[in-house]
Design a protein around this nucleic acid. Structure first.
Lengths: 161, 161
DNA sequence: TATTGTTATACTCTATAACTATA
DNA sequence: TATAGTTATAGAGTATAACAATA
């Protein structure tokens, strides 16, 4: 995700997108493409670019040492197999490491590495800034409003109170 | 996209997602996963499931006979090569057909088929309903608010007035 | 018997670049 | 020289199901 959608051809100015005009899922899905591409550009070369989940995983492991993969998987809406590959990747990049849980030897505990912690510092700067920059044309109060509503949606989807 | 994220493990109720808590792009990207999976389930077997773009393409071709691929590509944030494959697929499914433009023989014009028009009827019912159902817990006035703001974002991104 | 995480596979989407044919 | 669309390819993400180890 990093290629802009090509230069504006002659798009009729009065084009109407039918029922999608009032469909929230359409805007979520379409804006997702644009914002994800932009984010990938900003993160270029940083080992957390591409796809959803690496950034959240890095921050959660940094904030909650020993957190379990299945907990993160749930919060980023991935299944365990996708989560496993995400962790493989991040481990290979030296960002996090796994340990077997002493309490339950089926389970794992995740810990941040020095490189991971350093990257987390960068990510905490870049990621919120990218979002603000990308949506700069939405006034701050409106942005806050949308965030509040979508936060509730997110928490409901993953079952947080 | 159709597999739910696995049953809630023991996720601490007070977990905090760091800077992402206030980052619009995070919510757009994460909710996109959930709503897209749900939409795919609702569209199962309908030839427009999976990925972004088929639905918009179908409706635009139905509404604007002779519309050109590059115009749609621009509106759905794809490049021409991705658009081409999308059209291949939809043509194979008998939903649309291509013609060479009489005015400019480099360009194509897209037209809906009978099957495509019939599917468009179904899609106009299912897609907005899926969105409303999925976000049922967001009060209508708030949903309207979010849609208005994201519509402006979308139009700005693709350069519509 | 249920759970945690792994592996394997097939499919799709994405990004890129090189190509043609027309203009 | 620029544009519309095509083709080819490499890389990632996604969905599934089957599996091992442990509880």
């Amino acid at each position: 995700m990093s290629k802009p959608p090509a230069k504006p051809p002659t798009v009729p100015e009065d084009i109407n997108i039918d029922v999608l005009e009032d469909t929230l899922s359409f805007y979520i899905r379409t804006i997702n493409l644009a914002v994800s591409r932009d984010l990938d550009e900003r993160l270029e070369g940083l080992d957390v670019a591409k796809g959803t989940g690496k950034i959240t995983t890095l921050l959660l492991v940094d904030d909650y040492p020993g957190i379990r993969p299945s907990v993160i998987a749930h919060l980023i809406l991935k299944d365990r197999s996708a989560m496993g590959r995400l962790i493989d990747q991040m481990e290979q990049h030296g960002l996090i490491r796994r340990e077997v849980s002493p309490e339950d030897s089926r389970a794992q505990e995740l810990y941040i590495t020095e490189a991971g912690a350093a990257l987390a510092v960068k990510v905490r700067e870049i990621v919120p800034k990218q979002s603000r920059d990308f949506f700069f044309f939405i006034p701050e109060d409106e942005q806050k409003l949308v965030i509040d509503i979508l936060r509730r949606a997110y928490r409901r989807i993953v079952g947080l109170p």
